[in-house]
């Protein structure tokens, strides 16, 4: 019981995730700055931002339902932290693993987007409402490719738990190469999920101020920001676990170190995308996802099904 509580609240639960998220946030920002020929923030900047926001007053618009308005960010943080509990870090599986947890993780990672929508929609501000509508439109565009590309490796591994999948790929490391295409589409979908450039359409500053978050301030905004940062590392960890399932056999510190490297590597890719692309328009984003990403993700499913058939024979 105490062990579980420690697992949920401290390591690798909330506390670890929060700290790791801030570090990842720092690396993202610093790298972004370096790539842009800027100096970038000092190492404590993400924490300082969080403290500053937390110290500010929460302003709640008069017309909104205060409960929903306040609960949306809480749900967002809870969902991403819960999702993290199922993702293998230094060994195959976690104490919470069960067959089917990969589906649960994917759904838990959808919840933040829904809270962005609810929070934004019920903010009763035109900018928030447009941002909320864009969040949902975007969700439909990237969610299918993400599901397809994450589930394809599961098909090949014939296991619906992340622990089972990593175990399978640990025994057959070369099979992970079958999923190279899926890694690519999953990364693109993750950019959409995290609302990052080139898919930061729901919070396009120059058009709709801050999108869903326009009316949020203080602790509630801090929570949304934290949820996004944690979502970034959880998403990265999920992709790392599914597509780069190497090194978990090493066990203990070595595997943990490798986990950090893999996650931060994906964060670096995200920062790179932020540097080299311009923001797309919502229609361009949806077209791109449906015409290109979804078919490629589907191709991944076919590759894995064929591979599985060949292996079974």
């Amino acid at each position: 019981m105490a062990g579980d509580l420690f697992y949920i609240l401290v390591f690798p639960g909330f506390l670890f995730l929060a700290v790791f998220a801030l570090i990842a946030d720092y690396i993202d920002r610093k790298l972004h700055a370096k790539l842009q020929n800027r100096i970038g923030p000092p190492w404590y900047q993400p924490l300082a931002d969080l403290i500053k926001l937390a110290a500010k007053e929460d302003l709640i618009p008069r017309q909104v339902d205060p409960w929903l308005f306040k609960l949306a960010p809480v749900f967002a943080v809870t969902a991403v932290v819960t999702a993290a509990l199922y993702i293998p870090i230094w060994r195959h599986g976690t104490p919470m693993s069960f067959n089917g947890d990969v589906i649960v993780v994917l759904y838990l990672l959808t919840i933040p987007t829904l809270t962005f929508f609810l929070g934004g929609w019920y903010s009763r501000s035109v900018y928030s409402m447009i941002g909320a509508a864009r969040s949902i439109m975007q969700l439909f565009a990237y969610e299918i490719p993400l599901f397809l590309s994450i589930l394809a490796p599961a098909l090949l591994a014939d296991s619906w738990s992340l622990g089972g999948m990593t175990l399978f790929y640990a025994h057959h490391p070369w099979y992970a190469l079958f999923n190279a295409v899926g890694l690519f589409t999953a990364l693109i979908s993750l950019l959409g999920k995290l609302e990052r450039v080139p898919f930061d359409i729901p919070e396009a500053e120059t058009e709709i101020v801050a999108g869903s978050f326009t009316e949020y301030s203080g602790r509630l905004l801090a929570m949304f920001r934290l949820a996004l940062s944690i979502e970034m590392i959880v998403g990265a960890a999920l992709i790392a676990a599914v597509f780069l399932p190497f090194g978990l056999n090493l066990g203990g510190p070595a595997a943990f170190g490798l986990y950090l490297v893999k996650v931060l590597g994906i964060v670096a890719v995200i920062a790179l995308a932020r540097t080299v692309f311009a923001r797309l328009r919502i229609d361009q984003m949806i077209n791109f996802c449906w015409q290109f990403v979804a078919p490629v993700a589907f191709l991944q499913v076919i590759i894995d099904l064929v591979a599985k058939g060949v292996i079974a024979r």
Binding site: L35, Q36, N37, R38, V197, P198, D200, A204, E205, T206, T275, V276, F277, A278, R279
Partner: peptide, 16 residues
Amino acid sequence: AGHEIGFDTLLMYTWR
């Protein structure tokens, strides 16, 4: 222009 289309890298480079 870069900033308006969410391409801040161009902003940083040209302003430098």
